[in-house]
Amino acid sequence: MKVLIIEDESLAAEQLINLLYKYDKNIIVLEVIASVKNAVKWLKNNEKPELVFMDIQLADGVSFDIFDKVELTSPVIFITAYDQYAIRAFKVNSIDYLLKPLDFDELKTAVDKFKNSKQSSVNQDIIEKFKNMLTNNYKNRFVIKVGEHIRPINIEQINYFYSFEKATYINTSENRNYVIDYSLEQAEALIDPTLFFRINRKYLISLASILDIVSYSNSRLKIKLVNSDKNDIIVSRERVNDFKKWLDR
């Protein structure tokens, strides 16, 4: 297996290499790269690695910047020393990661998972979400069109985002509904996750938009939203625990 290591701490890189050789002495480490700039250059000019180990914080920025500058189709296992909120977000989005200081058993589990599932590259919307989370670079407003007019809507004016008939809408504090030029996944990646929560495939809601929360069947929750007459807005079962934590932040 041919792997690429993107890590700016020489001791951490050396430890990772030793653990990889302990896991499989036939692993080939193609290169150890310490910066976003050099990683982009290498990826543009070399063969595709079978697996990439990528530290989040590099010498010249966050590793998510790499995805903006080059198409990376190899599976990635991230290396992080970030807080529990970031780690929980990795878990929710099924992104593989290793926590510093590196541990052999955790590395073995991550690499075994890769070998057994042959996972594909990381979804770009998820990358954008984590990049925004780490840099606090969230959208403050969305631009909408009303006929021939263009109007900015501040994030504070938005109650929730929702999908309907292959389009994405926002509902505002004025109880107006506007189409936006983003998918729900893209909108989720661009806004502060402390302000909005994705409760299911169709709704991304703010705390202020919630009128009532009721226990529902199969450990789910039913939500009543402002400006909505729908009675079937459900927090999907796999999101309930994280939704409760989000409410209690």
Rank of each mutant, 00 (worst) to 15 (best):
S183M: 06
N136I: 08
A59P: 04
K244L: 12
K22W: 00
D8L: 04
A81T: 08
Y162P: 02
K166F: 09
V146R: 15
L72E: 02
A110R: 03
I234N: 09
F53R: 01
I66S: 01
S206E: 09
L72Q: 04
I33A: 00
A13I: 01
D192I: 09
N154D: 14
L204C: 11
R239V: 03
L51C: 09
V146H: 10
K100E: 03
R249W: 07
F197S: 04
V36T: 01
I28G: 09
F161A: 06
N175L: 11
F67M: 12
R220I: 03
I180A: 09
L195I: 08
Y169A: 08
N177H: 14
Q124T: 12
K166I: 06
F114S: 05
T135S: 12
Y97H: 08
F78Q: 02
A86W: 00
Q84P: 03
K44P: 08
A13G: 05
L99W: 01
V146F: 08
D96M: 10
I210L: 13
I233R: 10
S217Q: 12
N38C: 02
L4Q: 06
Y23E: 01
S183F: 07
V32S: 10
I210Y: 08
V40Q: 02
L184N: 01
L20S: 01
T73R: 13
P75F: 04
E7V: 03
T80W: 00
I28L: 13
E14H: 11
F196K: 04
V36I: 06
V3R: 01
I79D: 00
L207P: 03
D96E: 14
E165P: 10
I33V: 12
N123I: 05
I205F: 10
K2G: 14
P49D: 07
L58N: 00
D232G: 13
I33M: 02
Q119A: 11
T135P: 07
V52L: 11
F53G: 00
I66T: 02
L134F: 12
F114L: 11
D248G: 03
Q157K: 15
Y21V: 00
I17F: 07
A39C: 10
S94I: 06
Y23H: 04
K222C: 05
F142A: 05
I66M: 03
E9D: 14
Y85P: 04
R141G: 08
K2H: 13
K2T: 11
A167R: 15
D232H: 13
E106M: 06
N140A: 11
L207I: 12
A110W: 01
D96A: 13
L102Q: 00
S206I: 05
K108Y: 03
E165T: 13
L4Y: 02
E238S: 15
Y162F: 15
E31W: 01
D96R: 09
N45Y: 08
V92L: 15
I210S: 10
L134K: 06
K113A: 11
D96T: 06
F114R: 04
V111K: 02
K25H: 08
A86S: 15
S163T: 15
E128A: 14
Y162N: 08
S63Y: 00
L30I: 06
D65I: 02
Y138M: 07
Y85Q: 15
V62F: 12
K108F: 01
Q84C: 07
L99P: 02
L20N: 00
D24W: 04
V214Q: 15
N18E: 12
E47W: 07
N26I: 03
M54K: 05
E188W: 05
S121Q: 13
N241T: 11
I126M: 09
